[in-house]
């Protein structure tokens, strides 16, 4: 077995002055997987993703990306992954080219590499015609594509995606999903979270369901469906997490 893209052992995390979110969480995500993390609101999906991206410092356990401990080797691990947050994480005052130039430099790319990747990405994601326009004036779908382009500018080995298609039209969603599949084929491990279960079914080959900070199911989608005698992810989800409202902590 090769090195895991993500290895989480006995992870413990709690927000200041709050009870534990995770007490002893263990998870392995293999390189090349299209991994989906699902669960109701407040289950701990975003917290887990923020622990994996180093945005949150966990109190116990070990988390490594391709064998690099995230707690002790943050700079190296940060080079390994890209992150596409749910919010638009760029400068709306600037153009796509200006954003990619800036974030590319922060990813450690040189000027030439940035220029090449920018041309490539804007072409693939259908933004070449608006490359020098201010992003502020873009539609939601275009902004999502800019958000994605920035996340992959440095050709990361792992890509974390937090609801990457929320609020976009069918065409944009289709384009993004197809691009992500292409990216995965070229070797990028995708770690994805969303409430769009049909989209998740289309994209993910392995999933984990989280409930109250614990992983209650972790397998390939096919195995989980046959194990729980369900014919779709939505049925499986409701079967395992119940139908009650989950409003999280208020």
């Amino acid at each position: 077995m090769g090195t895991a893209a993500v290895s989480i052992e006995h992870l413990g995390y709690r927000y200041p002055r709050q009870s534990n979110i995770f007490t002893d969480l263990n998870l392995q995500i293999e390189a090349g997987e299209r991994f989906g993390i699902f669960g109701p609101n407040g289950a701990g999906k975003t917290t887990l993703m923020h622990c994996m991206t180093g945005l949150l410092s966990f109190q116990q356990g070990k988390l490594s990306l391709f064998g690099n401990d995230i707690a002790t080797n943050k700079k190296e691990t940060n080079k390994l992954f890209g992150f596409v947050p749910q919010d638009f994480s760029f400068y709306q005052e600037l153009s796509p080219v200006q954003n990619l130039e800036f974030f590319g430099a922060w990813c450690g790319l040189n000027k030439q590499a940035i220029k090449q990747r920018t041309t490539e990405l804007l072409e693939i994601l259908g933004l070449a015609d608006v490359r020098n326009k201010q992003v502020q004036k873009f539609s939601g779908g275009m902004k999502r594509r800019v958000n994605l382009a920035i996340g992959v500018i440095h050709d990361p080995r792992i890509l974390f995606l937090d609801e990457p298609t929320v609020g976009v039209d069918i065409q944009t969603r289709n384009a993004i999903i197809n691009y992500l599949k292409e990216l995965n084929k070229s070797g990028t491990t995708l770690i994805y979270t969303s409430h769009q279960l049909s989209e998740a079914e289309e994209l993910c080959n392995k999933i984990a369901l989280i409930e109250a900070g614990e992983i209650i199911a972790h397998n390939t989608l096919d195995n989980l469906l046959s194990e729980h005698k369900e014919d779709g992810l939505e049925g499986l989800y409701l079967n395992l997490t119940g139908k009650a409202y989950r409003d999280g902590n208020v």
Binding site: N78, F81, F88, S89, F90, Y91, W106, G108
Partner: peptide, 13 residues
Amino acid sequence: LNGSFVRLKTLPT
């Protein structure tokens, strides 16, 4: 406050 800061924190700079 905007998302760009979250992304900056995940970059190797």
